[in-house]
């Protein structure tokens, strides 16, 4: 499977061993904590906790850097805007019409760090939890909504299938691109209209193939007795153990601590 989209890194760390539901709630807790903290000390507490969790997860640092890459532009932009246009505190330096204030720089750094930590908290979850366990966890957490007729099993099954087929579709797209390239198609040349037009010979067969595959998958599932979530048992039972409770309690304490400090 392609590493590009499956962001899970197999491992044996304590974080990998936690129940997915505990991890989902804990990362929600960390994200909440990052929004709740107002003081420097509170922020420092949450930051230290997130960073030490990164180490505990034993996921290679390069992997986390890859998570950060897509947001690095936003982070840089946020910092620059704050640094250049905020007028708080003492002037750090002036250069023509441009003047940079102390408050601006510290605000910018604070916001940038907050975004980075938000992404890292989410990355901690997806890097240490297999996608299937993640959707199992989400299904379970959403199951109380069944009383309100919310189709939590179906939603989770859709997510599982979608995740499962991302690499398949990617592979299929590569194949089609090569086949069209052999017939002289160019995908990286010409203006916008030309490029959009060049996508049609890929998109049409890809869509046709996806629908065929959906039909086949539905047949295969039904022929193996799939009837939806009603009365369905699980191969992997989720078990909420003591350590999961401890982990959750820890995160709650961090969040409260961060907010109070």
């Amino acid at each position: 499977m392609g590493r590009g989209i499956g962001q899970f890194y197999p491992g044996m760390s304590p974080l990998h061993a936690l129940d997915p539901r505990a991890k989902i709630l804990a990362s929600v807790g960390l994200v909440a904590a990052l929004f709740l903290v107002g003081s420097f000390h509170g922020f420092l507490l949450v930051a230290v906790v997130v960073l030490s969790l990164l180490i505990v997860s034993r996921v290679p640092a390069a992997a986390f850097l890859r998570f950060l890459k897509p947001v690095s532009f936003i982070v840089a932009l946020t910092f620059l805007f704050q640094a250049l246009f905020s007028r708080e505190g003492n002037i750090l330096f002036e250069w023509g019409w441009l003047s940079v204030y102390e408050g601006g720089v510290s605000n910018g750094a604070f916001l940038a760090a907050r975004i980075l930590l938000l992404v890292l908290s989410a990355a901690l979850l997806t890097a240490t939890t297999p996608p299937v366990a993640l959707t199992d966890g989400i299904e379970d957490l959403l199951s109380p909504l069944k009383k309100l007729r919310f189709p939590s099993h179906e939603v989770a099954m859709m997510m599982t299938i979608a995740l499962r087929f991302i690499p398949t579709l990617d592979e299929e797209a590569q194949k089609i691109m090569r086949a069209q390239a052999a017939r002289g198609a160019e995908f990286s040349e010409g203006g916008l209209i030309k490029r959009v037009k060049a996508i049609i010979p890929i998109l049409v067969p890809l869509t046709v193939g996806a629908f065929c595959r959906a039909d086949e998958l539905a047949d295969a599932m039904e022929s193996r007795g799939y009837r939806g979530g009603e009365g369905r048992t699980r191969y992997r039972e989720l078990k909420f153990r003591l350590r999961d409770g401890v982990a959750l309690l820890f995160v709650v304490l961090v969040a409260v601590g961060g907010a109070v400090l």
């Binding site: 299929e172 194949k175 089609i176 090569r178 086949a179 069209q180 052999a182 017939r183 002289g184 198609a185 160019e186 049609i200 010979p201 890929i202 998109l203 049409v204 067969p205 193939g209």
Partner: peptide, 26 residues
């Protein structure tokens, strides 16, 4: 010319004629 495995999975045009014409047009 290169014909891949299961090349029919890359057919895309509304008609056979147009699909076959794709390469020569290019």
């Amino acid at each position: 010319g290169l014909v891949f495995q299961f090349p029919e999975s890359a057919l895309f045009a509304p008609t056979v004629e147009e699909d076959v014409a794709f390469g020569p047009c290019r």
